[in-house]
Computed example of a mutant assay.
Amino acid sequence: MLIGVPKEIKNHEYRVGLTPESAEELVAAGHKVLIETGAGEGIGAEDDAYKAIGAQIAATPAEIFERAEMIVKVKEPQAAERAMLREGQILFTYLHLAPDPEQTRDLIDSGAICIAYETVTDTTGGLPLLKPMSQVAGRMSVQAGATALEKAHGGRGVLLGGVPGVQPGKVVIIGGGVVGFNAAQMAVGMHADVTILDRNPLALERLENHFESSAKVLYSTKAALAEQVAAADLVIGAVLVPGAAAPKLVSRDMLSTMKQGAVLVDVAIDQGGCFETSHATTHAEPTYVVDGVVHYCVANMPGGVARTSTYALNNVTLPHALRLANLGWQEALKADPHLLNGLNVCKGQITCKPVAEVQGHAYVPAATAIA
């Protein structure tokens, strides 16, 4: 199979679909890899590194999309890229379709087979291709929030860890999953005052056992959430409904109760965001202010630490890319029900139920679509 890797074109996105090491594995398995020139520069991988392992270099993205049987990316295809997709071509990348009806329509019209990293599952019910980026984003959320809290960046002028004789900043984390857990680890490590809210009793028990007295764990009711948000210096939105739009948990009314210069970091922004006042931002202009509250809503946070993120992502995507290349998409999906869960759009049909429901499309089960 010919696997194509275009250069990412989303604002300040420096990751790449395949590292030279991953490309080498595909070449060793008998496949051809076509890399757009400069695609790996953001992680320090020059074209020569890809040539050295037997990959070919393409001068333009058009060549990639025209020749490749499978496109391996990181971020969802932008409008110009979607226009180049063709019927029967495999697209393997993050999609986050629920809050993006325009992308969904374009993928339907393309006739491509679109497999989303974020809905591939594992035997434990987890999301293994989303997990490493959730780990990165969770850890980055505290770094980003700490910076936004600085007065020069519009924040309250609070140091999260405080100093002897001065109270630390109060960090409230909504959601105790992978993002929330990693955010809490960083915030606790900075000696902040940390509270985590969740509604899953098993998650609450796990968090309590792990953090013990270093973080407070609360069951998330509307009243508890409102109270914690009002007292917070930094609120991190870390909720996830797989494949679906994120619930709006922090309302505009809640902002009026918050401290001036407090910070919201919405890690759920890829799925539409969990704050009512959220809209996607970029690394170029990461924050904006609503009612005196600083919002950080960068939709590709891990792109800011591209090398770490790319290698972490390739560790989990490469086995699936190899399976798709070795078996072809139909046989690979039939053989692996967890990879099948990643199928979101198949030759004009929506095969991800949450996406179909939120956008009003007809839903076709993935198993039916590939039969």
Rank of each mutant, 00 (worst) to 15 (best):
R15F: 07
L225K: 02
F92K: 08
E331I: 08
G126S: 14
E276W: 06
D48H: 10
G169C: 05
P365A: 09
T60Y: 10
L159W: 00
Y94P: 01
P77I: 11
T19L: 13
L34G: 11
I113P: 02
A306M: 15
V33H: 03
T351D: 04
E150C: 00
Q135Y: 03
A232C: 04
P132Q: 09
Q135H: 04
A306R: 13
V194N: 00
G54Q: 09
A238F: 11
L339N: 09
M190R: 00
K32T: 04
E41M: 11
A366G: 15
P337H: 12
M133G: 06
K170H: 13
A192E: 00
I115L: 06
A335M: 10
L234T: 00
L225Q: 07
L91W: 07
R139C: 05
C274T: 15
G111K: 14
G88M: 03
P337E: 14
G177I: 13
L18F: 14
N11D: 14
E208H: 07
I90F: 00
E331A: 15
V33Y: 10
L225C: 05
L318V: 15
H153M: 10
K334S: 12
H295P: 01
Q349C: 05
P242L: 05
V355I: 12
P168Y: 02
A306E: 12
G138F: 09
V355K: 00
L107S: 01
G111H: 14
A284S: 07
T123S: 13
I115C: 08
V229Q: 02
P168C: 01
H283W: 11
T195W: 03
L207D: 06
T368G: 03
L85D: 01
A148W: 06
K259L: 07
G292I: 12
G40Y: 14
P319Y: 09
A367D: 13
A152E: 07
G30D: 12
G261T: 03
A192V: 02
Q228Y: 00
A262E: 04
I236M: 01
A183V: 09
A366C: 05
T124W: 08
E208W: 04
C352Q: 14
H153C: 07
S278A: 15
G360P: 13
A332E: 08
M254Q: 10
G272E: 04
P302Q: 12
H191Y: 05
V298A: 08
K222M: 03
T310C: 01
L327C: 06
E357S: 12
S220Y: 02
A83L: 08
R105E: 14
H96P: 05
D233N: 02
L204Y: 05
D47K: 12
A362F: 06
E46C: 03
A68E: 12
V293L: 15
G38T: 05
V72D: 00
L95N: 08
K222I: 04
D122S: 09
K151W: 01
A137R: 06
A325P: 07
A203D: 08
F65G: 11
G177A: 09
A39N: 03
L322M: 14
Q359G: 00
T277R: 13
E227W: 01
A312F: 01
A187K: 13
